[in-house]
Design a protein around this nucleic acid. Structure first.
Lengths: 227, 227
DNA sequence: GTCTATAATATGATAGAC
DNA sequence: GTCTATCATATTATAGAC
């Protein structure tokens, strides 16, 4: 991946050629097929032949539309990237704009952090495709994509600031630690649900996202109210 | 990986041939080289040529000593698998054997769960090699290895039982949920330390494992004492 | 735009010399 | 037990017809 390719530079350009990001049905079919295959096997193990066959297109189509295999990965990442952060920030603004006791307001901030991921996580596409695909990108994605992923935690600073203001007796680093813990819990629900299933021994319902969020907030809140 | 190989069946056997698990210097050199390369790149992207070159051996050596590429992966997994669970179980027995209030005893059980991972996680080899290697195995490992990995949560039942007995007013599934949360926090420290670093903005010391464990237990304990 | 055909290269595995 | 040489196959990317 990514080493032997100056392909982005030689990608199709000029009149009559698709620009990066242009939408047409062939592109969509390639992206969909690639997404499914990349969820199952490593990038190097999914060949362009596999993708184009699944899409019912010729081997040459990927290189035509995305310039290279890496170009396809980048396009795939970009279509999934942003929505979650926007929702978190919207809920955070709502939480900060509402009145209440410190305890209620801390709970609302935690809710703004956790709820969007848990809601988003319930989509079948996210569990089936996006989660494994993202894990692969973190491990093996093209450097270009991995750099984009790393900027994804910047918005957490808004949560740190909000919690520092609500709990001024806590040091900033203490707030960061506790936030880190809450994100760990969120991760467990989002990505390790099968472990919970295995422990409980039967299927559990994660679709009631509000109830699960309440469970998380209830468990964490006393820890946040410690001196 | 793993599809085209009945290689384990045709692996070297009989007089003069190494048995699986036998130790000699060539095996060790191959395992070490493979470990380093698999930490960096996906299994399919690391060729047997890469491994044998790094080990200073001939291409044929992997097939001779491990039967196939998958055989090498299995050997690599088996040498890392068990020690953590043993330490957790030992600490759990110690915790259950000691007297104290319910609160103290719950704290000791949580400590037995968290401390071994955090201590283990501090080894440079674990962070540099084992973490990425394990993530790769979960995604792309040979089915044989993935099956072995799945059984790795069985020992958590001992923690569930201990906590159910200490907190009999909680339902078993409530205990599982809370345990799942604690494991999520543990994961955050073990595998997402860079996020914490990024939030705090400067280097943090995770080497004082006892202090970090105390931090986790202190944050979680009030949540465990909820009705 | 999409195809077929092919170039150029890399791979896992094995045979056989020593 | 380790080597070299080779097989059979798969890969990405591209050239060129339509």
């Amino acid at each position: 991946m990514s080493e032997p390719t100056a392909a982005a530079a030689t990608a199709p350009r000029g009149r009559g050629r698709p620009r990066l990001g242009e939408n047409n049905e062939t592109r969509e079919r390639l992206l969909l097929a690639a997404q499914q295959l990349f969820a199952e096997r490593s990038f190097t193990q999914v060949s362009l032949r596999d993708i184009t066959e699944a899409a019912g297109l010729s081997l040459a189509s990927v290189n035509y539309h995305f310039g290279s295999k890496d170009g396809l990965l980048l396009a795939l990442y970009q279509r999934w990237a942003p929505s979650l952060i926007r929702e978190r920030e919207q809920l955070l603004r709502d939480a900060l704009g509402s009145p209440g006791t410190v305890e209620q307001r801390v709970a609302a901030v935690l809710r703004a952090l956790v709820l969007p991921v848990l809601r988003w996580s319930r989509q079948a596409q996210v569990q089936d495709f996006h989660v494994p695909f993202t894990e692969r990108l973190r491990l093996d994605g093209p450097p270009e994509v991995r750099a984009l992923m790393r900027t994804g935690t910047a918005h957490l600073r808004h949560f740190v600031r909000a919690l520092c203001e609500l709990l001024p007796h806590l040091s900033r680093s203490e707030v960061c630690w506790r936030l880190h813990f809450v994100l760990g819990i969120e991760h467990a629900i989002h990505r390790e649900a099968s472990r919970l299933q295995a422990m409980i021994g039967h299927d559990i319902d994660l679709d009631d996202v509000d109830a699960v969020t309440d469970r998380v907030v209830r468990f964490c809140l006393p820890g946040w109210l410690l001196p």
